[in-house]
C-alpha cells in the first residue's frame, strides 16, 4: 500500500505584483516523510511554505492539505487547519516577552482548556524532547541561537501537529547545534509520526536526514528525487548546487551588458 498523501501541490503559481515567484510547481508529500525543498536564496522556498500555511493566496493552482484546498477555506476553517501545522521560523521567532516555558505553553493555553498542572507536564515533556527541560525558566534573550531554535522546535510540536514546516532551520548555527537540530528533525518526525518539510540550502546536513528532495530554481521544480539519486545526478543545476560550484547554470554574474561595452573600451580605443 502506498503511503497516504498529506499534501498535494498542483500547478502552484504566485507573484508579488508583476514579479512572479512560483510558476507552476507541483509536488506531493506523504505522511511520515521528511521532505526537503532546496534552492538558492530568493527562489521562492519560503513563499511555498507560506502558501501551504495559507498566509498568502496563490495566483493559480492550489495546495491541498489533508484533502482541503487551503486558499478556499474561510478564516475559521483555516485557523482550525493551522492547528494541525507547526512551523519553525528561520530565527525561531520566540515570543521575547514570554519565558521559554510560556512560549511552549502558548498554544496549549490559547487553544485548549487543559488544567495548568497538565500543561506543565506537557511543556516539560516537549522541552525534554529537545533536551532543554532545565532551561524552562529562562527568557528567550538568555538563549544561544541553537538553544532558541530548539525551544522553537519544542513550541512547534506543542499540539502534536500532523505537519511541521522548518524554514531554514540550519542557518547561522555552529556544527554541533546543526547536527543536533538535524537529528531532532528526523527523530521527532519518526517518533510523532508527523510529516516534515525542511526548506534549506544546507545540502550536506539535509541530505543526511531527508527522504525526498525537491530543487526549486526560477520558480519551477528543477529536479527531484531521493537523496541518493540527487547526489549521483548529472543534471548540471543539481550538480552545481549539491557540490557548491561557483559558476554553472546559476551564473556568478548578475545579468549585465557585455563587460567590455560597460567599461566603454570601444570608445576609448576608438
Amino acid at each position: 500500500m502506498p503511503p497516504e498523501t498529506l499534501i498535494e501541490v498542483k500547478n502552484l503559481s504566485f507573484s508579488y505584483g508583476s514579479r512572479s515567484i512560483l510558476k507552476g510547481v507541483s509536488m506531493t508529500m506523504s505522511r511520515g516523510k521528511v521532505v526537503a525543498i532546496m534552492g538558492g536564496s530568493g527562489s521562492g522556498k519560503t513563499t511555498l511554505l507560506r502558501l501551504i500555511g495559507g498566509t498568502v493566496t496563490p495566483s493559480a493552482g492550489y495546495v491541498k492539505f489533508d484533502n482541503h484546498v487551503v486558499h478556499e477555506l474561510n478564516r475559521d476553517a483555516l485557523f482550525k487547519l493551522r492547528r494541525k501545522m507547526g512551523m519553525l521560523f528561520q530565527f525561531g521567532a520566540l515570543f521575547t516577552d514570554l519565558s521559554v516555558f510560556d512560549n511552549v505553553a502558548f498554544q496549549m493555553r490559547e487553544h485548549t482548556d487543559l488544567p495548568e498542572s497538565m500543561i506543565r507536564d506537557l511543556v516539560l515533556m516537549k522541552l525534554n524532547a529537545v533536551g532543554l527541560r532545565g532551561a524552562h525558566h529562562l527568557m528567550p534573550g538568555e538563549l544561544s541561537g541553537g538553544m532558541a531554535r530548539r525551544v522553537a522546535l519544542a513550541r512547534s510540536i506543542a499540539l502534536d501537529p500532523t505537519l511541521i514546516m522548518y524554514d531554514e532551520p540550519f542557518t547561522g548555527l555552529d556544527p554541533i547545534s546543526l547536527s543536533v537540530i538535524g537529528s531532532l528533525i528526523r527523530r521527532l518526525t519518526d517518533a510523532l509520526g508527523t510529516t516534515a518539510i525542511v526548506v534549506t540550502h544546507d545540502v550536506q546536513e539535509s541530505l543526511k536526514i531527508v527522504d525526498y528532495v525537491y530543487f526549486i530554481a526560477d520558480g519551477v521544480i528543477a529536479a527531484e528525487g531521493t537523496p541518493k539519486e540527487v547526489s549521483q545526478t548529472v543534471k548540471p543545476f543539481v550538480h552545481q548546487f549539491v557540490h557548491g560550484e561557483i559558476d554553472g547554470p546559476v551564473p556568478f554574474h548578475y545579468p549585465a551588458v557585455a563587460y567590455h561595452s560597460d567599461l566603454q573600451l570601444e570608445d576609448r580605443l576608438a
Binding site: 498566509t55 485557523f79 492547528r83 515570543f95 521575547t96 498554544q107
Partner: peptide, 25 residues
C-alpha cells in the same frame, strides 16, 4: 517599538501560523 520588533522578528507571523490572531492577542 515592541509591536514593530515582534513583527520584524516574525513573532507576529509565527502567532498567525499557530492559529492565534496577532491583532486580538
Amino acid at each position: 517599538a515592541e509591536i514593530g520588533l515582534m513583527k520584524a522578528t516574525e513573532q507576529l507571523s509565527a502567532m498567525g501560523m499557530m492559529a492565534v490572531d496577532p491583532v486580538a492577542r
